[in-house]
C-alpha cells in the first residue's frame, strides 16, 4: 500500500504539500503543534487512496516527507 510518512518535527507547517495531491486531500494541516510551535501537516488516508506519486514530498522545502510504495 503506498503511503507517506511526515517527520512532524522537521515540518515547518508551510502547507505547500497540501495542495498538490492528485487524490484530493490526503495531506492536511494538523491542529497540533510540534516542539518548535509549527502546525505540521498530517497524512489522512482511511480509504488507502495514496498512489505514492510523491507530489507532496516534491513540494516540501524541508524534505520532511518520505514516500513508500
Amino acid at each position: 500500500m503506498p503511503r507517506i510518512v511526515i517527520d512532524v518535527e522537521r515540518c515547518k507547517g508551510c502547507g505547500l504539500c497540501t495542495q498538490v495531491c492528485p487524490k484530493g486531500d490526503l495531506v492536511q494541516m494538523s491542529d497540533e503543534f510540534n516542539s518548535k510551535g509549527y502546525r505540521p501537516s498530517k497524512f489522512v488516508d482511511p480509504e488507502k487512496k495514496c498512489i505514492g506519486c510523491a507530489f507532496c514530498a516534491n513540494m516540501c522545502p524541508d524534505v520532511a516527507i518520505t514516500v513508500y510504495r
Binding site: 514530498a57 516534491n58 524534505v63 518520505t66 514516500v67 513508500y68 510504495r69
Partner: peptide, 8 residues
C-alpha cells in the same frame, strides 16, 4: 515488499 520511492 515495500520500497522507499522518495527520500532525502
Amino acid at each position: 515488499e515495500e520500497k522507499i520511492v522518495f527520500q532525502r
